[in-house]
């Protein structure tokens, strides 16, 4: 049995995402240039309960709608490289904007853990977060941590462990849009699933096509060509 897993860290800038990455991986990290883009991703490893995790620190972005190279790199990694878990790091002191990104990730992939960072700072400011309500509303584990003071790490690592070993399951609750949008999604979603099967969330792809995401289309076709080449060579 394969004992190593890949975890991608996603989140807004200034959420302490890199602090979490550093706390996890210590100095066991290196920078890997990825997919030939100018953006390089930091990678590191952590070991927990006989399992190896390779952690990839995605660029900090405000959204994943491919408005910039950073956003494309993060989006492509989550959708096409399919990490075993995508860890979305949120800033507890500005959850509203941070959740926006988390909701986008929930549309893209199934195995998501929402990690609310800077929880000690938030508590000092009198902000109380009920993670159980959020877990229920989002359909994925929500964990409160402080990367800076290493609070909540055992819980986070255990959740990661239980998720990869299949003891818990994620059922991301999708955002329901207004009727007009939902109708349009339904119109093309089935055609998409005929084409891509289960490899990519057809609902998410439908939304991106409706939004006119040309960068995604280009990336999709590029990977299609690459896959064909690999198959022919095999």
């Amino acid at each position: 049995m394969n004992n190593s897993y890949r975890i991608a860290l996603a989140g807004n800038p200034n959420t302490g995402k890199s602090t979490l990455f550093n706390a996890f991986t210590g100095l066991r990290q290196h920078t890997g240039n990825w997919a030939g883009k100018t953006v390089s991703l930091a990678e590191g490893t952590v070991r927990h309960k006989e399992k190896n995790y390779q952690i990839v620190d995605l660029p900090g972005t405000y959204s994943l709608f491919s408005n910039s190279v950073d956003e494309e790199v993060a989006r492509n990694y989550i959708v096409f490289e399919k990490p075993d878990i995508t860890l979305v790091v949120l800033d507890a002191t500005s959850l509203e904007r941070n959740l926006n990104l988390a909701l986008q990730v929930l549309e893209m992939t199934k195995n998501v853990i929402v990690c609310i960072n800077l929880i000690d700072e938030a508590e000092k400011k009198g902000i109380k977060i009920n993670e159980r309500i959020l877990t229920r509303k989002l359909g994925v584990p929500v964990i409160k941590i402080s990367a800076r003071n290493k609070i909540g790490f055992p819980m986070l690592l255990d959740t990661i462990d239980r998720l990869v070993s299949g003891k818990i399951e994620c059922n991301p609750v999708q955002t329901t849009y207004n009727e007009e949008i939902e109708e349009k999604i339904t119109t093309i979603e089935s055609k998409i699933s005929n084409l891509v099967g289960n490899t990519i969330s057809s609902r998410w792809l439908a939304l991106r096509l409706l939004d006119g995401d040309k960068a995604l289309l280009t990336e999709f076709n590029r990977r299609l060509v690459l896959n064909d080449q690999v198959r022919r060579e095999a």
Binding site: N100, L103, K128, I133, L134
Partner: peptide, 21 residues
């Protein structure tokens, strides 16, 4: 519309999940 509705869901989530003491 998409972003606006994502944000209104964010706000709803904060309303039920976050309290200020």
């Amino acid at each position: 519309d998409i972003v606006q509705q994502l944000y209104s869901r964010s706000r709803e989530l904060c309303d039920v999940g976050v309290s200020y003491t």
